[in-house]
């Protein structure tokens, strides 16, 4: 009986030893994980701060250039009243999920061709058309009733393009006024250099690239903090269990 007793006690001690060993190892693992996550968290926080300050500096540069442009152009010339009635975005953001539930943002830029570029890219036959039509219109306006023969002569010189010219000509006139191509044109054709600088400091991917890098960090930080907290709680629970 005594033998069994002692055996039981021995077995109990052994199991307790085994449990404490496994707990010890899990504590070490958890503390390593905690350290790793904490370091990662601090790195992210540091990088967020750096990017934030770079972004703020760039935005400030942009404002400074805008103010200079406003000074040279006039107060009301650089305001929200000048915005176009039709706008088309040139920058898009693509968000995709990567590992650890993190999101990755990437910006894509669409270059909208200016109307003149669009016309240049079309075929040469279409290029000739609007020019001829412009001349014909002037003649039509001045000598519409007096010399109809000249008009016929002009149309017979280029019979094939004339049939397609009126729509292309009107399209060109409309697209010349199209404000979508470059937002800089909302503020005039001959804008000061400072406004261009303002545009480049806001545009160039720099501000937007920075903001796109900032966003995942801002999303990631609370998540990471949560995981650090969880490991911390786990660690404390383990510690309490061992030292009971």
């Amino acid at each position: 009986m005594t033998y069994f007793w002692s055996a039981d006690i021995q077995q109990g001690q052994l199991t307790k030893k085994g449990t404490s060993k496994s707990l010890q190892s899990s504590t070490e693992e958890t503390s390593l994980l905690l350290d790793e996550q904490l370091l990662q968290y601090m790195d992210q926080l540091e990088s967020l701060q750096e990017k934030r300050s770079a972004l703020n500096t760039l935005i400030e540069q942009g404002w400074f250039s805008l103010s200079k442009a406003r000074y040279s152009m006039g107060n009301k010339q650089v305001s929200s009243l000048q915005y176009a009635s039709e706008m088309e975005p040139q920058i898009f953001v693509q968000a995709r999920a990567v590992e650890n539930d993190a999101l990755e943002f990437c910006t894509e830029r669409i270059t909208i061709q200016s109307p003149t570029e669009r016309v240049q890219n079309t075929t040469s036959v279409e290029d000739i058309g609007p020019k001829e039509e412009g001349v014909r219109r002037r003649i039509k306006a001045s000598k519409d009733m007096a010399e109809p023969e000249e008009l016929v002569g002009a149309s017979t010189e280029n019979p094939s393009p004339t049939s397609t010219k009126p729509p292309s000509g009107s399209h060109r006139n409309n697209s010349d006024q199209n404000p979508q191509a470059d937002p800089l044109k909302w503020f005039g054709i001959l804008v000061p250099q400072t406004l261009k600088q303002a545009q480049s400091s806001f545009r160039q991917g720099r501000v937007l690239q920075l903001s796109k890098r900032l966003v995942p960090l801002t999303i990631l930080l609370p998540v990471q903090r949560q995981s650090v907290l969880l490991s911390n709680v786990q660690m404390i629970a383990l510690y309490n269990y061992i030292h009971k």
């Binding site: 915005y83 545009q199 806001f202």
Partner: peptide, 12 residues
């Protein structure tokens, strides 16, 4: 808003 719209993010 003017700065970012100049950058080309505006849409209607």
């Amino acid at each position: 808003c003017t700065g970012f719209l100049l950058g080309g993010i505006g849409e209607l």
